[in-house]
Each structure stands twice: as structure tokens, then as C-alpha cells.
């Protein structure tokens, strides 16, 4: 399968297979009017299978969101068809207004205009917990 190269834009590579749609949704890429490609289950020597997202514009990417969904993903910035920057990312310590707490007893379910904040609580197991009720976040 061929997907055209992009000349000016961003490629999010090495996404763990199966997480591209989650990342697409959390990055709100649906609202972009430029071409965006999600390529699933691409063969990878290192990972076996991986997902890739290609965005054909210089859209700012929220690194925290990428780091939350898959800290092993890489971000490649392409300008005039040339790779100008390859960035690896860390898991963010704090995630604000990216996901919402699923605990029906959490104050965030009723308090108006409250920030939805998650804190990295167990880095080795990639666990984020709600700042308010400490419920574990779904990735």
C-alpha cells in the first residue's frame, strides 16, 4: 500500500499498533482541513507492527497528548520534503483537559468549567490518576 510522502508537515511514527485512532481523536485531528493519513499495522523490524499518522501541514502537535498515548512514538517534522527534526517524547507529568475522569463519583462530573487534570502516578506502568479522585485513567 502506498501513501504519498508529505512535503510540509508532521509524521507521528512508531505508534504502538492499535493506538493511532486514539491519538487521532485526542489530538483532535478530525477538525483539520488538510490531508491526514492514518496507516495501521505497518510492518516494523523493531516493533513487529506499528501505526503511523501523517499530517500534511505544519500543525502544532500537543506533545503531552502523544506522550500520554504512546511515549515511544516519534515526531518527525518535514519541511520542503526534507526531515528537519526528529523528536522523541516523554510521558508528561501532568495532563490537562485531554481526557475526562470516568468515575461517576468524581467532582469533575458536576463542577462547571473545572479543569480535567491527570497526574502520572506510576511511571513504570504508565498509570495516570485523576487529580481529584485518584481514579486510574484509561489510555
Amino acid at each position: 500500500m502506498n501513501v504519498d510522502s508529505i512535503s510540509n508537515g508532521v509524521v507521528i511514527d512508531h505508534i504502538r499498533a492499535g493506538l493511532a485512532f486514539r491519538l487521532y481523536n485526542l489530538l483532535d485531528l478530525d477538525n483539520l482541513d488538510c490531508p491526514v493519513a492514518i496507516i495501521k499495522n505497518v510492518a516494523s523490524k523493531k516493533m513487529g507492527k506499528k501505526d503511523i499518522i501523517k499530517i500534511d501541514s505544519q500543525t502544532p502537535i500537543d506533545f503531552d497528548v502523544v506522550g500520554f498515548v504512546d511515549p515511544n512514538a516519534t515526531i518527525n517534522v518535514i519541511k520542503d520534503g526534507v526531515l528537519v527534526e526528529k523528536l522523541s517524547i516523554d510521558m508528561p507529568e501532568k495532563l490537562t483537559n485531554v481526557i475526562k475522569c470516568k468515575n461517576p463519583r468524581c467532582i469533575t462530573t458536576v463542577e462547571q468549567e473545572i479543569e480535567h487534570v491527570f497526574i502520572l502516578s506510576e511511571e513504570d506502568e504508565k498509570v495516570y490518576r485523576c487529580l481529584y479522585c485518584e481514579t486510574k485513567a484509561d489510555i
Partner: peptide, 24 residues
């Protein structure tokens, strides 16, 4: 609601003691 006293403490100008927030 769990976390409500925390929200209160961030907005109050006096000390807040959590007297129990849900199962938290």
C-alpha cells in the same frame, strides 16, 4: 463527590478540612 474538598481548598481563602469525600 470525590475531590470536592480539594476544589474547595483551591478556591477558599480560609483553611479547608476534608470531612469525607465519597469513597476517597
Amino acid at each position: 463527590k470525590e475531590g470536592a474538598p480539594y476544589v474547595a481548598s483551591k478556591n477558599a481563602t480560609i483553611p479547608v478540612i476534608n470531612a469525607g469525600d465519597g469513597g476517597h
